[in-house]
Structures are given as C-alpha cells and as structure tokens.
Write a protein that binds this DNA or RNA. Structure first.
Length: 481
RNA sequence: GGUGGGUUGGCCGAGAGGCGAGGCAACGGACUGCAAAUCCGUGUACACGGGUUCAAAUCCCGUACCCACCUCCA
C-alpha cells in the first residue's frame, strides 16, 4: 500500500515515493507571528498534523520542520503602532500560537526554527545566488539584494505562470530592481524608521531578511538539499513558494519533491484575515467549543476543500462527535479490558472497515471518508452494545480508538489535558455524584410505586440545575447538560 | 490580462461514468411508564444549456455565478 498525495506542482495525485526509503522529510510554512491565531491559521496546523501522523502510522520515520516567521514588515509596523518592541510582539504571538496548536492536539514538529535565528544561513545562501549570477545588490545605495527573475528561466514553473503574464504589483516600490518582478532576498536597514534591533550584519550592510529566503535556508539546513514534501496554505503558492523554489534551485538545490497546499476557511464568504478582528481567534472559539470539537470539525472536511466557517456548522460537527464519544464511554463501561464473560464472537465486519479507512487515508488523506468509516464501525458497535460484553465489542472499541488516535481525535489523549481543573474537578464530581445519587434513590422509589409525577419532577429539577438523567439497562446515569 | 479552484438534498460535507459516503436536523417504527441514548426505516441532491455514451453529479463544449493568487497573507 502506498500513500498517494496531490502534488500542486504537477496538479495530480501521485504515489508518495520518498527520497530515502522509510523516511519522510517534511517542511511546512508556519505563521508570521504578528497577531492572535484564528481558525484559518490553525487549519494548516491541523491538516499537516494529520499528514505527519499518517506518515508515522504508515511506518515512516518523519522529520517535520515547521518554521515561525518572527521578523517582517507587518511585525515591525504593528509593534510600532502598539508601542512595544517587535521581538516582544513576535514572541507573545508565538506563545499564543503554540497554545492554540496545543489546544487542538497538533503535535509539535521535530523542530520549529525561527527566521531570526537563521540569518547567517540566509546570508550564505544569498551569497551563493549572487555568485551564480541569480541575485544582485541594488545599486541605489539601499542595501537591498534582489533575486534576478530573468536569470532563472524556470521561474513560474510551480504555479505555471509566465513571467510576462504576471501583473506587476502596482504598489510595489521598484527601488533598485532590474525587473519589477524581482523579489527581495535582503532588505537594507532604514535607520530613520526601523529599530536597530531589527537589523543584522551582512556583506551588503546591516539589514534583515526578505520573506522567502528564510524558508529556503531553514528547509535546506534541517532537511537537506533535497527533501520530500513542502506544505502550506494555498495563498503561499505564489509568490512565496514559487520564489522559494526558484531561489533554492538557482542555488543548486533540488529542493522539494512534492508540494501540498491546504485550502481556505472563510467566514461570510471572506478570507479570515480580511474579515474579522477577534471573534474567530482560537481563544475566543475555545470559549464556546472544546478543542477536540474544533479539530473534529476541521478534520471532517478534506484539506483541499474550501470550508465556509460558521458556528452552526461547528455545532453540528460537535453533535456528531459526541456520538463517537458516547459510544466509547458506553463501550468501555460494558466491555472494559479484562476477561470476557460474554460471547466470543469476532467482529467479522472490521477487516473490511479497516481496509476502507486505510484506503481513504492513503488516497491523499481522505479524512471525510475515513470518518465515515468510523461512524459505520460505531453503528455496528452500538448494536453489539445492546448484546452486552463481547470480544467483538472490544475489538470495535479498540479499532475506533486506534483510528481516532491517528486522526488526533482520541478523547482520552492526555494532550487534551484537564486545563487546570485537576483535583478540584474530581472532588466536585464525587460530591455531585453523592448528591445526585440521593435524589435518584428517591426517584427510584417513586417509580417503583408508579408515582411518575414525582419521578419526573425530580428529573426536571436536576435538569434545571444542569444535570441530565438517562435511564439505562444498568440503572440511571447522570451527566452535565 | 494570467493562474488555480468551486457551485451536491433542510444544513454540513464526500465522491468523480453504472450500485444513494457519512454526519446534523426532520419524520415513522422498535425499546422505554415517559424521556434520553440506541437500533431499523423514510429523500427522485448534484448551478444552467447542449453534447458523447447502453448508462453522466462524474467526460466534452458553452453559459452564469462565486472564490483564491499575481510580490503583506494559513
């Protein structure tokens, strides 16, 4: 079985053949840490986390690098506007981002390099490009260095665009460029408007890196001259990825074999970055939904499909996810690990479901189809539940748990954490359990005497208090509404 | 102007020539004192107009609308 992935460069789903057998080297463009992360930002994190997990599941030794861009025009502009140091803003936002990823159970990458920590590598790479005749220092005294687009005939290959067909940016400052499409590798320090802390020494004078060069430098450093997969959001295809590829290849590196791009999340038909200030930041969404529910919502859609975000859709997804959790809880109660005292029947439908799940995931990470398989298994499992403990039920439960694990959606994954509740929470549960237990005894007496009015009144009162009662074959159960 | 993508039932969201993915909601049935949960069942969905084919949501041509990128962007 091979994993097949959609490669943006060739615009087709291709068998994944790593450069080195059994290893997968992946680079994903992380974020520019300039504002609080919103739902759109973390989609990329979640999507590529699924890729990472699936590759591992399939036995690959994965090296996964996801960078952080911690210096750029926007960071400088925003920090100046907020009256704080740029490095303070970047660091604060990076911490927010890390918290957001953690809240969504996005596994940390192998390493998370920051642009500011790799200036020497970038300077070296720019030097190579100048030497090879693909870059030049502007002669306007700005200290800028540009990539010479005309010197690289393959320019535009990733996004299939001809240089001459490109619209030159109207707002771009031509400065010392030979061609308006040339892009900055190095930006000279503007001593009058930029902080001295945002400038590093280089052969072309003090300055800071251009946006694209950092990813080339860091990918080459940690993954090598050639590596397997390069990922990011669709918007990065051009110019960012096109430029990354051009400058890396022009410097003599084969660079990435596969390019993967996740689609957008919009709200009200608009890109999130444009539309909303703060209602869709991760902390804001997490006040209304659990991280696991948000992750389920994101994973339910294919990574290359556009998603129109709405809280209604998120609520629906959460309702669906609770069906999964319900099954797991009940299955664990009925069929905990240990000797089976029920039937020894095997779950004969499982192999077929397993096959379908693997096939779905192998086919360009088909998470929607994979989740459909999980629901199919749960329907079977629920039927088994009605029959009590059995080998089959345990098999289904374990399989569902394994699937959820690989999707990063296992409710019991310690990564979801108790978020500070801990002890107090547990003690409160005991208290409530005892109090509710007393009322349930009264209700049981009333029911035994066919006094349903009293029984229902007790249930209603509990419900008003936020406790829901459910009668099961094993007796009444309570849960928080 | 160039490049890429989209339009699927009440809603979300898969699929990519034949067999109704899945979820949410709704309705009917089973179970229940009633609920809840669960199971069983219920839907003539593929933007529009042509065409190809024994067969089209899927392929081709055209039309409409939407979105993204073209040097700030997940």
């Amino acid at each position: 079985m091979t994993i097949r992935l959609y490669d943006t460069a060739t615009r087709e789903v291709r068998d994944f053949v790593p450069l080195e057998e059994g290893k997968a080297r992946v680079y994903v463009c992380g974020l520019t840490v300039q504002s609080e992360p919103h739902v759109g930002h973390v989609r990329s994190g979640v999507n590529f986390d699924v890729l990472q997990r699936w590759l591992r599941h399939r036995g690959y030794d994965v090296t996964f690098i996801r960078n952080v861009t911690d210096i750029d025009d926007k960071i400088l502009a925003k920090s100046a506007a907020q009256g704080r140091a740029w490095f303070n803003l970047a660091y604060a936002m990076q911490r927010e981002l890390t918290a957001a990823y953690a809240a969504l159970n996005v596994e940390p990458p192998t390493y998370e390099p920051a642009a500011t920590g790799h200036v020497p590598e970038m300077v070296e790479l720019i030097g190579d490009l100048i030497e090879k005749g693909h870059a030049y220092a502007a002669d306007d005294g700005s200290g800028d260095v540009y990539f010479d687009v005309r010197s690289w005939p393959a320019y535009g290959e990733l996004t299939r665009q001809g240089v001459d067909d490109m619209e030159a940016a109207e707002d771009a400052d031509p400065r010392g460029k030979r061609d308006p499409r040339d892009f900055a590798l190095w930006k000279g320090w503007k001593a009058d408007s930029e902080p001295a802390t945002a400038a590093w020494p280089s052969p072309w004078g003090r300055g800071r890196p251009g946006w694209h060069i950092e990813c080339s430098a860091m990918a080459l450093k940690y993954l090598g001259s050639a590596f397997d997969i390069h990922g990011g959001g669709v918007d990065l295809r051009f110019p960012h990825h096109e430029n990354e590829q051009a400058q890396s290849r022009a410097a003599g590196h084969p660079f990435a074999s596969y390019w993967m791009h996740n689609a957008w999340i919009t709200t009200a038909g608009e890109k999130m970055s444009k539309s909303l200030g703060n209602s869709l930041t991760i902390p804001a969404v997490l006040q209304r939904f659990r991280g696991i529910e948000l992750r389920f919502y994101l994973v339910s859609a294919h990574y290359r499909s556009h998603v129109e975000f709405s809280f209604e859709a998120l609520e629906e997804a959460a309702a669906g996810f609770r069906r999964i959790e319900n099954f797991l809880h009940r299955a664990l109660e009925v069929a905990a690990d240990g000797p089976v005292d029920g039937t020894e029947r095997e779950a004969d439908f499982l192999p077929e479901l397993e096959r379908r799940f693997d096939e779905a995931m192998d086919d360009d990470l088909g998470t929607p189809a994979a989740i459909a398989v999980v629901f199919d298994a749960i329907r079977h499992g629920n039927k088994l539940l009605g029959e009590g403990d059995s080998v089959a039920l345990r098999d289904v439960r374990r399989q569902v748990e394994a699937w959820l694990d690989v999707l990063g959606l296992h409710p019991d994954d310690p990564a979801w954490g108790t978020r500070g509740a801990g002890d107090t929470d547990e003690r409160l549960t005991h208290v409530v359990d005892a109090l509710v237990g007393t009322l349930l005894e009264q209700r049981a007496e009333a029911r035994a005497g066919k006094d349903f009015a009293t029984a229902d009144a007790i249930r209603d009162r509990l419900k008003t208090a936020g406790v829901e009662i459910e009668d099961t074959p094993a007796g009444p159960k309570w849960s928080l509404a």
